Simulated scan of single mutants.
Amino acid sequence: MPMYPQGYIGADAMFWDLSNDVGPSGDSAGLRLRGGAQFNEFFGVEAHLGTGGSDGPVELDHLIGAYGKGILPLSDEFRLYGLAGITEVDFDVGREDGLSYGAGAEFDIAPNFSVGADYMRYLDRSDHTFDAASVGLRFRF
């Protein structure tokens, strides 16, 4: 049985896509670091820091965000989760912030290590969206 609160850090490959109706669009791959605290088996908080990648006219300088994390444990080793919060995204063509949301899953591969994947909508505007799919490892301490 885990002890709470429980901290964690992780690193992910992040595959992002900026879809824009009125300006430059792009997609590429970058790196996302994440860290957080899980307060019980159902709730935690998480922060993301991402960077990297450019394709065509758009380059992702960085993203930084903070999220509440709702967790649905399906077994001792497997969890689904949802994230909702605020993100600031800085492209070489401008900076924006807004509400963000996403969902993912994690599977424990060792007592303190898990592998996971998620899909985030970091920006959702009427004329453009910024999404990212990520896969990586997490270490709990």
Rank of each mutant, 00 (worst) to 15 (best):
M1Y: 07
P2W: 12
P2G: 05
P2Q: 12
Y4P: 10
Y4G: 09
Y4N: 11
P5I: 11
Q6C: 06
I9N: 01
I9Y: 04
I9F: 10
D12V: 03
A13V: 15
L18Q: 10
L18M: 13
N20W: 05
N20F: 03
D21E: 14
G23I: 00
P24I: 07
D27V: 03
D27N: 15
A29H: 03
A29L: 03
L31D: 00
R34Y: 07
R34H: 15
G36K: 07
Q38L: 05
Q38D: 12
N40R: 11
N40V: 00
E41C: 00
E41T: 11
E41Q: 15
F42A: 02
G44T: 03
V45C: 01
V45W: 03
V45Y: 00
L49Q: 07
L49M: 10
L49H: 07
L49F: 14
T51W: 13
T51H: 11
G52H: 08
S54C: 09
S54D: 13
G56H: 04
V58R: 02
V58D: 00
E59G: 10
L63H: 13
I64P: 00
A66Q: 01
Y67R: 05
G68P: 04
L72R: 09
P73R: 00
P73Y: 00
P73W: 00
S75Y: 07
D76H: 02
D76Y: 00
D76I: 02
L80Q: 09
L80N: 08
L83W: 09
A84E: 01
A84Q: 05
G85M: 02
T87I: 06
T87V: 08
T87Y: 03
T87L: 05
D90A: 11
D92F: 02
V93N: 13
G94L: 11
G94V: 12
E96T: 13
D97W: 12
G98I: 06
G98S: 09
G98M: 10
L99Q: 07
L99K: 09
S100C: 08
S100I: 12
G102T: 10
A103M: 13
G104W: 05
G104S: 06
G104P: 05
A105Q: 06
A105K: 10
F107N: 06
I109S: 03
I109R: 05
A110Y: 02
F113E: 00
S114L: 10
A117V: 14
Y122I: 03
Y122P: 05
R125G: 08
R125L: 02
S126P: 12
T129F: 01
T129Q: 13
F130H: 08
F130Q: 08
A133L: 13
G136V: 07
F139T: 00
R140Q: 13
